[in-house]
């Protein structure tokens, strides 16, 4: 069984352990963007959201993607997850070339190989917490591994609330249910888009701690988009985006280091 403390995770202020010390860490690439461009609209209204982005996300790693509003971080995530198409370049998920897949194949890819956590409204209001967690498996027609289910449920600390509906749960609890749902199918990559954006700091810490634990204890790969340096500090690695391009990278970040980097990038941009 897991020896992860329930519910309360202290906010991380110190640097994360170096990646080399992590168990079951492999250097396989879980997701990769190669020369990706994303252009919205055309003519006068043309907006370039991503320009020539090359980035890799290692399997078993927890990567934060940071950047100011409009830097293209959400677009990058959507493209990586197969939710959006790229204008130029290629996206790979594991050994699969995502670019060029049809709707049916993309749906399958999402169903079987990718998990999602959004900022809010993650749950279907008609389903209980448990049914929400099982939804991806049910859709795929797979039976949950009971042990893994219990592990996930214990980890998010919702054992006594499984029969509740989302409306009966707090924001933090709802988001933990969303995390559990993202993990239940053991996807190759979990994409989290500002998962703590709508939570108070304590609830946010719980969710982030849970995400980190799933990486470190179960080898889950997570790509998280955020603009919060504290949230980013839970990751093993931070990728900084600005104006649609990767501008910097940080391994083993602390909140202070992230903040420093952001300030530096801001000043560079101002110049």
């Amino acid at each position: 069984m897991l020896a992860i403390p329930r519910k309360v995770y202290p906010a991380r202020l110190s640097p994360a352990p170096t990646t080399g010390l992590l168990p079951r860490m492999t250097r396989d690439v879980a997701a990769r963007a190669v020369g990706v461009w994303k252009v919205f609209g055309d003519g006068v209204a043309e907006v370039t959201a991503l320009r020539e982005v090359d980035v890799e996300f290692a399997a078993g790693g927890f990567t934060a993607v940071m950047g100011p509003s409009g830097s293209g971080k959400s677009t990058l995530m959507h493209c990586l997850a197969g939710l959006d198409t790229v204008t130029r370049g290629e996206i790979h998920l594991g050994a699969t070339r995502v670019t060029g897949l049809g709707d049916r194949a993309l749906t399958r890819l999402r169903r079987e190989r990718v998990g999602f956590v959004f900022q809010q409204f993650n749950l279907l209001p008609v389903l209980t917490a448990e049914e929400n967690i099982r939804l991806p498996l049910d859709i795929a027609g797979r039976r949950p591994d009971p042990e893994w289910f219990r592990t996930v449920v214990d980890t998010v600390g919702l054992g006594d609330r499984l029969r509740h509906r989302p409306a009966q749960l707090s924001g933090g609890q709802q988001q933990r249910v969303a995390c559990a749902r993202a993990l239940i199918a053991r996807p190759e990559v979990v994409f989290a888009d500002e998962p703590t954006g709508n939570l108070d700091s304590r609830s946010g810490a719980e969710v982030l701690g849970f995400l980190r634990a799933s990486v470190h204890d179960h080898g889950q790969t997570i790509v998280m988009v955020t603009h919060d340096p504290v949230a980013a500090s839970y990751a093993d690695r931070v990728v900084f985006l600005a104006d649609g391009g990767v501008v910097d990278e940080l391994a083993g970040p602390s909140a202070d280091k992230v903040l420093d980097t952001m300030k530096r990038l801001d000043t560079e941009a101002a110049r």
Partner: peptide, 9 residues
């Protein structure tokens, strides 16, 4: 949400 979770058209 359900489409993202893998429900097809």
């Amino acid at each position: 949400l359900v489409r993202v979770a893998g429900l097809d058209r």
